[in-house]
Design a protein around this nucleic acid. Structure first.
Length: 575
RNA sequence: GGGCCCGUAGCUCAACGGUUAGAGCAGGGCGCUCAUAACGCCUUGGUUGGGGGUUCGAAUCCCUCCGGGCCUACCA
């Protein structure tokens, strides 16, 4: 049956540059996006999977200052660090770009120019707090002072965390800079550009309403912003900062906006496009990105899926679409937004700024990536927030990876080695048990495909695990160790099937556990990653006489001692 | 203050308003001996957070209360 090769554009929310991310950031966007990308590639479809570091904004400047580095150097270094960690987690980006790239400068300025042409940019004069000691304007939350409502002395300029009252920075008593503590503050007039989202409210609203199949989490957040209070508000898209994309109208200067840069949340989603352009540039076909993003240049058949944590939803459902639609140009809009809740750590929140939880580099120091990938994906916070505990992690990983899958690989390869040698044995024909197994596998594999297509991450993991378990059930029922004594040919057939199952499992499991999948294929001396559209045929891939290697333990178990040690080590706050 | 989400077995989660609310893990029993003391089979366990309502029928829809979480536009 001829299969059309579909095209998938996949983006993961951009990790912010200010530090190494924790596991919550991973499970909320990059990891499920990678799962989907690997699956689609596995099905033979064409995939463009891009991500990038999000490098602009005040926190990046502050993190650089804290590290004693120039912001450009800090970002370059941190980008390399994050890219290296991503690679070690097996995140299969076609390109991992930087929002500070020349491509993003050009595209961001282009979009701003187009929006201005269509009357969707307003220039607004505002009064903002300037810190003379810090030499910069301060975002509201970087101003601290005493709350006029409750008297709390560490209230922030946007809200008092103690009494939750919304504040204006000028409301604060004895305001000071949260960066330097300086009280040498003054209010200055400054002009900024606003994206007139309010003018596009109707269009955005219709567009969201047409997405009936999106997760509730996604649409409810979007609708809230569209309909709350006076409806969708215009959003400032420029800042008085040094580091960022200079405000320009296309390639022309923007009178009155000299020395200002675009707001990070204006340029960050545009980086999805720019990262694809970076990819094209890197492969020496500078225009190749356009067939992914321009409806008039070949992107008509692209399905675009975005992955993100719930905190990113407003920007992806409203601001970025407003930018795309408002440009009046035929850019590709997102087709599906998969959003996630948060992962919590032993009852509290993971926090980059507070150093709470397990960070990505630490996780990899302790265990191979596949352990984390499996646990995080099989417990993805889809319906509600999910909790990470070391006990749960140890139990699920040991059971699923070591006992169910790893041990299956061990028992079949070691049995074959001892009875037939390290070669796929010859002889024997399928009986009813084998026919039943193939039917059961086919049923479950089709279900697995359905869940993966729908991005039902937990359900996909459950189904995959059940597929692994079928191998153990089969071996138990077929009992080649018993058959070997009375009917060696039959045992040979059973073992041959078992060895082929290992290859089949490698192919099916690769989206979840790519490193182990590679080990399994290597052990079977196979590079056939063909998707099992026909399960019976897939189980004939390794022919009699084909050599294999008996692998080392695929997944070592996590001992109680290790678990306790890590529990202790990661209990506190990271320095 | 306003809004949204969640609450189902000891734990983590399923269940388009429709048989007797299901899985995995944990617990109990039996079996197997190829395997990482692994695997398989069977099994205990629930007043679906409380209360009220709609319906022939509610975990599911409505109201209310309790508990948890998130968002609320200058962190990104």
């Amino acid at each position: 049956m001829p299969k059309t090769r579909s095209r998938h554009l996949i983006t993961s929310a951009l990790p912010y540059i200010n530090g190494i991310k924790h596991l919550g950031n991973l499970v909320g966007s990059q990891l499920p996006a990678d799962l989907f990308a690997r699956y689609q590639r596995g099905r033979g479809n064409e995939v463009m999977f891009v991500c990038a570091t999000d490098e602009h904004g005040t926190p990046a400047e502050l993190a650089a200052a804290k590290a004693g580095q120039k912001v450009a150097d800090f970002c370059a270094r941190m980008h390399d660090t994050q890219a290296d960690i991503a690679r070690r987690f097996g995140l299969s980006f076609d390109h991992f770009g930087r929002s500070s790239s020349p491509q993003n400068h050009q595209l961001t300025q282009h979009f701003a120019g187009k929006l201005a042409e269509h009357g969707l940019i307003a220039e607004v004069s505002e009064r903002q707090v300037y810190s003379l000691a810090d030499g910069r304007f301060l975002p509201d939350r970087y101003i601290e002072g005493t709350c006029p409502n409750c008297g709390y002395d560490k209230a922030r300029g946007d809200q008092c965390e103690n009494c939750t009252k919304q504040l204006d920075p000028t409301d604060l008593i004895d305001p000071r800079s949260a960066i330097s503590g300086s009280t040498d503050l003054e209010v200055r007039e400054t002009k900024h550009l606003f994206l007139r989202q309010s003018a596009m409210r109707e269009k955005l609203s219709e567009w969201i309403d047409s997405k009936a199949d999106w997760p509730v989490l996604t649409t409810s957040i979007a609708k809230k912003w569209l309909n709350d209070g006076d409806g969708l508000q215009d959003r400032g898209i420029t800042r008085d900062l040094d580091w960022g994309i200079p405000v320009k109208k296309g390639d022309q200067p923007w009178p009155g906006m000299e020395g200002k840069v675009f707001y990070v949340w204006f340029d960050a989603p545009i980086e999805y496009i720019a990262a694809t352009a970076e990819w094209a540039e890197a492969r020496g076909e500078p225009e190749a990105w356009r067939r992914w993003w321009r409806l008039d240049e070949g992107a008509g058949d692209v399905r675009y899926t975005q992955f993100m944590g719930k905190d990113n939803v407003p920007f992806h459902t409203l601001s970025f679409p407003a930018t795309i639609i408002g440009s009046g140009e035929p850019w590709k809009l997102v087709d599906y937004i998969k959003s996630f809740n948060y992962l919590t750590y032993d009852g509290g929140q993971f926090s980059t700024s507070q150093g709470r939880g397990v960070f990505q580099d630490q996780a990899l120091q302790v265990l191979p990536a596949d352990y984390w990938r499996w646990w995080l994906l099989s417990h993805a916070p889809e319906g509600s927030d999910a909790e990470f505990t070391w006990e749960n992690f140890q139990i699920s990983v040991n059971k699923d990876l070591a006992d169910v899958l790893g041990n299956f690989v061990s028992r079949i390869t070691k049995f074959c080695r001892s009875k037939f040698g390290e070669t796929v044995p010859e002889g024997g024909d399928y009986g009813p048990e084998e026919t039943a197994l193939i039917a059961a596998l086919a049923t479950r594999i089709r279900a697995y495909e359905g869940f993966m297509e729908a991005m039902e991450v937990r359900k996909s993991a459950n189904e995959l695990r059940a597929i692994w378990a079928l191998g153990n059930e089969y071996l138990q029922a077929a009992a080649p160790w018993a058959a070997f004594k009375t009917d060696p040919e039959r045992a040979a057939m059973q073992v041959r099937l078992g060895l082929n199952l290992i290859r089949l499992y490698a192919v099916l499991s690769a989206p979840f556990i790519p490193f182990a999948a590679d080990s399994m294929l290597q052990a079977m001396r196979s590079d056939d990653r063909g998707w099992p559209d026909d399960v019976g045929a897939a189980l004939q891939t390794l022919p009699p006489g084909h050599g294999f290697d008996t692998p080392e333990v695929l997944f070592a178990k996590i001992s109680d001692e290790s678990r306790e040690e890590w529990q202790e080590r990661f209990q506190g706050v990271r320095a």
